[in-house]
Nucleic acid binder design. Structure first.
Lengths: 326, 326
DNA sequence: CTGTTAGCGCTTTCAC
DNA sequence: GTGAAAGCGCTAACAG
């Protein structure tokens, strides 16, 4: 645990004062080219690294970006995180991830830890944060929500896809394929799911079809099995699942019960996550433009940092990716 | 962006000096019960939160734990991270995740960012960190490696499963099921994979069987297909894949080519990750005791923080979980 | 028990 | 151009 060199060390070794070193290191104006050159060389020789803590303490803004995510087990989320990260990196920010699980308290706790570290901003990839926490976070740093929040929160930006449109795309697709008994499947009352359900209901009504939602219980196995029984009993020929994870469950249980997909039952998911390609048959799913969403999140953050005061909410068009499952 | 209250604010409001506040807040000895009570109440009323940065700058230890992970897209890794997180939380540490991708430079960068934040320790869930980086990191804070590193690094602890044993378990299992032509499948030269291959070769030799490894190319689709063709041409009746991700690929391609698993080809994976249960047929896989590994990592860290100087390397026994795939 | 005093390493006026 | 000096918010001696 050798004591790390500080700017003072660099300064004495280079024969200048520490303020010069500070300036040179951040290539601020006011340092002679030769001096700067020498300072940088010495810093390098000494293996100097600036102390983030001290730096953060002094100036009000760091180069750290906090990303909060609730679940690591949904590939869609991790894919979004990766795209955010990529975009942030391009802006010279380094990402600190906090994993909040599906627990408002823990999530709030993590958000605060990040904020205490003086992050430049917070990108929230989770619909579990409660509005109060978000609002108070927004007073400390720009907060960008990727995906839907529980309820709209003033003062924070968001980037999202149009869930209602996406759901309508699914209905349209299935109807075009000749389906009329199309069940909607969900396990939760999360905001995105609700929006998809609304989209589904509207679209079904437009086609003069009966909408019916079935709710999965926590334990996926039993529930999906029960649901499949129900669905077939009700004459369903297609299922629109809230997301790929649940669509995958349906596929699995169809397999377990000898149902052929898509002949006995067509299955469509949402998110077009890595799971969709792993599934067999490959899963038809609604693609959220997640790369663009990551970029946009970074862009919105940049704007906030640049002083924008009014909220912005970007809504992107999803698109349906037809594959073998329905 | 109201200025956050500092201990000074709390002190003046409570009519005491700031050192008293500092002590009271960390319930250190030397503060009267009544005084402490009052200070805490005032702090609460003011919405005071201690400034991590200043705190970290002053004392040499924070309550932050850095966890570095290379890939978020392998469910096994995320599951390990979750168990580490759980164990750390029990120790009162809050986890900061850094995502390094499979890139030594970026990984090193992230590790340093974390270290710069004065984390109490670093838990590395990635075999991509280069030994030099690990070593220099270990000079700054305790480093615990979960899984195998590229090469053994002095000064860092590790917790791992016995990959060679795990591979032997697989071979034994397949042989017991009557297989003799058992191919080993891998896509990479990562340390864990190499150990598993060694275990496979040794076990095959012990059974008097011929060992042969086939290497997947980057693009999984093509490669697995080619491999399957090869494997069947060679009369393979079983495949032992380096991990679940690759086993899943094999399953997918078996499906694509109308091969029945396990009748035409038995498939066994490694990690017993979430993928194993999603797969159809469900994947036989080697279970790494990841919950225990997370706990152990936290435990080793605690010991280091407590002053242990000599390295410890924990190796846990994996176990085979037989399922439908072979 | 309580208060004063020095800094941690860095940035930032402000003189020279 | 360059350097001295004053803190950011907190903790850790040390006196009272």
């Amino acid at each position: 645990m050798a004591p790390r060199p500080t700017i003072i060390d660099v300064a004495t070794h280079a024969g200048v004062s520490k303020s010069l070193v500070s300036l040179a290191l951040r290539d601020a104006p006011g340092v002679g080219a030769a001096t700067r050159e020498r300072i940088l060389r010495v810093a390098d020789e000494l293996g100097y690294r600036s102390n983030t803590l001290a730096q953060g303490l002094r100036q009000r803004r760091s180069t750290l970006l906090g990303v909060v995510v609730s679940s690591l087990d949904n590939p869609y989320h991790t894919q979004v995180v990766e795209s955010v990260e990529q975009a942030a990196q391009a802006d010279g920010l380094s990402v600190l991830l906090a994993h909040g699980a599906r627990d408002q308290g823990r999530l709030a706790d993590r958000m605060n830890s990040l904020l205490d570290l003086n992050v430049a901003g917070l990108i929230v990839v989770s619909s579990w944060a409660d509005p109060g926490t978000l609002q108070s976070a927004a007073r400390r740093a720009p907060v960008i929500m990727v995906g839907r929040s529980l309820e709209p929160v003033a003062g924070i930006d968001s980037v999202n896809n149009d869930d209602e449109l996406g759901a309508a795309l699914v209905v349209r697709h299935l109807v075009a394929a000749g389906h009329e008994r199309i069940a909607h499947l969900t396990s939760s009352r999360r905001p995105a799911g609700l929006a998809r359900e609304r989209g589904y209901r509207t679209a079904m009504a437009e086609h003069g079809l009966e909408a019916y939602t079935r709710v999965l219980r926590r334990h996926p196995g039993e529930a999906a099995t029960g649901l499949l029984r129900e669905a077939t009993a009700e004459g369903s020929t297609a299922v629109f699942a809230r997301n790929d994870v649940e669509a995958f469950d349906v596929l699995d249980h169809a397999w377990d019960h000898g149902l052929d997909v898509p002949d006995d039952l067509a299955v469509v998911g949402y998110d077009d996550s890595a799971l969709a390609l792993r599934a067999r048959p490959r899963l038809t799913s609604v693609h959220q433009p997640r790369e663009r969403m990551g970029e946009l999140a970074a862009e919105l953050l940049r704007e906030r940092l640049g002083g924008r005061a009014e909220d912005r909410h970007e809504v992107l068009r999803p698109r349906l990716v037809p594959r073998a499952s329905g």
